[in-house]
């Protein structure tokens, strides 16, 4: 893995890879619609690396009464367990930041499950900060403790 990490586009031919990675790694389940719309996410959805072992999908957030997006929200980010600590997740965040800057956006946000402190730690290493707790965020997912932590990175 000495070579730089390569990010790949999500295409009609490899779109099932996103589902595969998310289903294997994440505790939450996404509806089919999430995947069928993924192809329209452009640069905000990516696979990494040469053999795809990680995937990120994000979207632009346009708050009410605004006409332009003010932040990028990470809908899903996942790297297969054996391939962590090789910088693939970091590469995803960097990529999203670059995309944000192109659109004059200065914030990336995300939710994480309260029962995964190691994920919080990872985000904090990437420069994210806690914004607060959201109760019952994962209620529909039937997780045993449905509280989420909202986090954000400003730049």
């Amino acid at each position: 893995m000495a070579q730089p990490i390569a990010l790949d586009d999500l295409t009609v031919n490899n779109k099932e890879v996103l589902r595969k990675i998310n289903e294997v790694v994440l505790p939450t389940r996404y509806p089919d619609e999430f995947y069928s719309k993924a192809l329209q996410s452009g640069e905000l959805v990516k696979l990494g690396d040469e053999i795809p072992v990680g995937a990120v999908k994000a979207k632009l957030i346009v708050p009410q009464h605004h006409s332009v997006p003010t932040s990028i929200y990470i809908e899903s980010i996942a790297v297969l367990e054996p391939y962590r600590n090789f910088g693939i997740g970091k590469k995803f965040i960097q990529h999203l930041e670059e995309q944000a800057k192109i659109s004059y956006i200065h914030e990336i946000t995300a939710h994480i499950w309260i029962k995964q402190p190691e994920i919080l730690e990872w985000y904090q290493k990437q420069g994210f900060e806690i914004k607060g707790e959201v109760e019952n965020y994962y209620k529909d997912q039937k997780l045993d403790e449905p509280t989420a932590i909202a986090i954000s990175k400003k730049f």
């Binding site: 890879v17 595969k20 053999i51 391939y83």
Partner: peptide, 10 residues
């Protein structure tokens, strides 16, 4: 199976 569980995208 070990290989697939490890890297299910190959």
């Amino acid at each position: 199976d070990l290989a697939i569980n490890h890297t299910p995208t190959l």
